[in-house]
Amino acid sequence: MWLAVFFGASLAVALTPGANNLLGLHHAVHHGPTRATTALSGRLAAFTIMIAAVVAGLGPVLAASHTALLIIKWLGVVYLTYLAARIFFTPTHPERAPEQGHPLRKEFLTAITNPKALLIFTAFVPQFVDPARGDVPTQLALLGAVYLAAEALAGTGYITIGTIIRKADLTKKARRRLDLGTGTVLLAMAGLLATTATTATTPTPGRT
């Protein structure tokens, strides 16, 4: 149940329009679904590197400090609210990436230098870590793997949309409705996480 909830939350975050998703859509429109899907592996490779870095450096901090974990959770609430606000108030436009360069390399470089991705692995993923469940680094690694699955599914979704656009234009109005739906889910999730973080401020017997 814990991982199922995390997967649902991760999918909502991964579906948020961003540099890599728009790049994946762009590749599908201009290069076709096969090449776009191959390029998606570049993004996943970059995210794997980020997850390994978080497991190596952030795990011990979370294991030693409940306060640090709580701070990260509140940062995640702010981050999700920010994402929702950007979706509500900023229209989405397909990214006009240059045609030169291999799509896989562009996906990797976009992901490895993406501040949003860094925030996901340092603020969003650790929200679901619970020291009471056991070894924190192991939890981070498991959650990271689940997030990669959600990212792969979301990326495939954008590639599918790009393929549809490649064959028949999708109206801006329809695309905007999808974005607003994603923003609503993210805002609701931010409220839920805020409630969880507030509840976590009350000490639990046997935990320090």
Rank of each mutant, 00 (worst) to 15 (best):
P91E: 09
G134Q: 09
R105Q: 10
G157A: 03
T198S: 07
E99K: 12
D130A: 10
P137S: 06
L153E: 03
Q139W: 00
P126W: 00
K116F: 13
G134A: 08
R133H: 11
D169Q: 15
L119S: 14
M189K: 08
K167L: 13
A152S: 11
G181A: 13
F121W: 07
K116P: 05
T198V: 13
M189Y: 12
Y147G: 06
R86D: 07
T204Y: 08
A188H: 02
E107W: 02
V136F: 01
L109I: 11
L187P: 02
K167C: 09
R133N: 14
K167D: 10
L104C: 14
L153I: 09
A123S: 04
T160I: 12
D130R: 08
R105C: 05
I164P: 02
G155A: 04
L178T: 14
P203S: 00
A111S: 14
T138G: 06
A188V: 04
P203K: 05
T201R: 09
F124Q: 00
L119R: 10
T196I: 10
H102A: 15
L193G: 04
G134R: 05
T201V: 09
L140A: 03
R177Y: 15
A174N: 14
A84Y: 04
P98I: 11
T195M: 12
Y147N: 13
A111V: 11
F88K: 05
L186T: 03
T138D: 09
L180S: 07
D169A: 15
G183W: 12
R105H: 08
G101T: 01
H102Q: 14
R86E: 10
P205V: 01
Y147M: 12
F121V: 15
P94L: 11
I164K: 13
P205L: 03
E107P: 07
A154W: 04
A150N: 09
T199Y: 05
H93P: 13
E107L: 11
T201F: 07
A174H: 11
T90Y: 07
A132N: 02
L186P: 08
D130L: 07
R175T: 12
E107Y: 08
T195K: 14
P94D: 13
P137Q: 02
L180V: 12
K106L: 04
P91D: 09
T156Y: 15
T163V: 06
G183K: 11
G181S: 10
T138Q: 14
T195P: 06
V136I: 01
A190D: 00
A97D: 08
K106Y: 00
Q127N: 13
R176H: 12
A197H: 04
A123G: 01
A154S: 09
T202C: 01
T92V: 15
A84E: 01
G162A: 07
D179P: 03
T196W: 14
P126D: 06
A123D: 01
K116M: 05
I164G: 07
T163R: 11
